[in-house]
């Protein structure tokens, strides 16, 4: 069964191209450094394997990396709690803690 977004996302994607949908190969690569980006403070070392192993992909070490962070799913809590209908969520209520559920 085809997904309802297949046409919108995939087939219609060439509308973004400046060339009007005529595609051709990329230019030769410019020699610009694309080494792994510096991580923000608090980020883990992604060159080490995460706690969870590959799912269904055999022993390919590349599956042990972390993926791109999702746009959803962080659950943030506030160590001093929140108060409904108050003026704010306790502006000085401490540092928020955001964590993803570990599997």
């Amino acid at each position: 069964m085809s997904h309802r977004l297949l046409h919108t996302l995939v087939f219609a994607s060439t509308s973004l191209l400046a060339c009007g949908g005529q595609v051709e190969g990329l230019d030769p690569p410019p020699e610009k450094d694309a080494s792994p980006p510096k991580k923000d403070a608090g980020a883990k070392d992604v060159t080490t394997a995460p706690e969870t192993g590959p799912e269904d992909a055999g022993s390919d070490a590349r599956t042990c990396e972390g993926g791109w962070p999702t746009t959803k799913g962080q659950i943030c809590t506030f160590d001093a709690g929140i108060v409904c209908c108050s003026e704010s969520w306790l502006e000085d209520g401490g540092e928020p803690i955001c964590c993803e559920q570990s599997q």
């Binding site: 608090g42 883990k44 060159t47 590349r62 791109w68 962070p69 955001c98």
Partner: peptide, 9 residues
């Protein structure tokens, strides 16, 4: 949040 893109070593 910490930002940790894939490194693809």
């Amino acid at each position: 949040l910490p930002f940790e893109p894939p490194a693809h070593p």
